[in-house]
Nucleic acid binder design. Structure first.
Lengths: 129, 129
DNA sequence: TTAAATCTATTACAACTGTAATCAATAGGA
DNA sequence: TCCTATTGATTACAGTTGTAATAGATTTAA
């Protein structure tokens, strides 16, 4: 799968929210959030299809587009490569940066604590699988 | 500051490790880690200078290059934009993704716990500043 | 049935990127 | 002093990206 560009990602996000959608539904959804011309959005949809990240089914006049690449898969792959590239593969420094810049809310801390709790739960009795 | 491309980042990392360095020192450092031709590395250095991310001082025959953009600043800016773009600004889901894919080590968990502890420490008595 | 509207596909084009090669200035050696 | 090696600057060139416009196919309205 070729890399998804930033503009393409915005289009993909619309399809992750709901699918399938016609090109015009996607255009409308993006009209709220961006200044993109209809032609631009259609180009992006086309490129996503060519990259294999989106599929379509002919539906008479228009096509119905659906994501092939799933959001979790995309997020995980991008996270991996981002952390590898920018933080030499270690995640804590990223979180530390947020903390240092006061970009962490109490709610984030709560979520992290819960994550840690369930991670530790999972380890208990599971001898590293 | 224009965006730093991925190849440029690799060069910048060498200068973050140690500065100032001559072009040839950078080339040598990268020769270990990559297959880049000397000319390629020099082009990247030049682009970094044009982007304002690196400065140089003439030193007779060769130049001495130093980073202008600091690693912490780069990391923080990239983290912000990455989390915004891929996780709608929330950091916990990123960590959760790592946990789900078993990409978290006990050492990561320890670091995160320490971070949380010091964050909570900082909150205590500090009425949100 | 013919024209107009509407889709997708193709083409456009400049900026940025990866990956170098060539040019121009200069420092050292013969 | 003159040639050669070296170093940064300029140029090259194809692929990607952002941002559309145009062309071609087809449906629909008159």
């Amino acid at each position: 799968m070729k890399d998804i560009s930033q503009a393409e990602l915005e289009v993909l996000k619309i399809l992750w929210q709901s699918a399938p959608q016609t090109a015009n539904q996607v255009v409308d959804a993006l009209a709220d959030a961006s200044q993109w011309h209809e032609k631009t959005v259609k180009t992006l949809l086309n490129r996503l299809v060519n990259k294999g990240a989106v599929s379509f089914a002919k539906e008479g006049r228009a096509y119905l587009y659906s994501p092939v690449l799933q959001q979790q898969d995309y997020q995980h792959k991008e996270s991996q490569s981002f952390i590898a590239r920018v933080f030499e593969g270690r995640i804590a420094p990223l979180v530390a940066g947020f903390a240092a810049h006061k970009n962490l809310q109490a709610s984030d801390i709560d979520e992290l604590k819960q994550l840690i709790a369930s991670w530790e739960q999972a380890q208990t009795g599971a001898t590293d699988e």
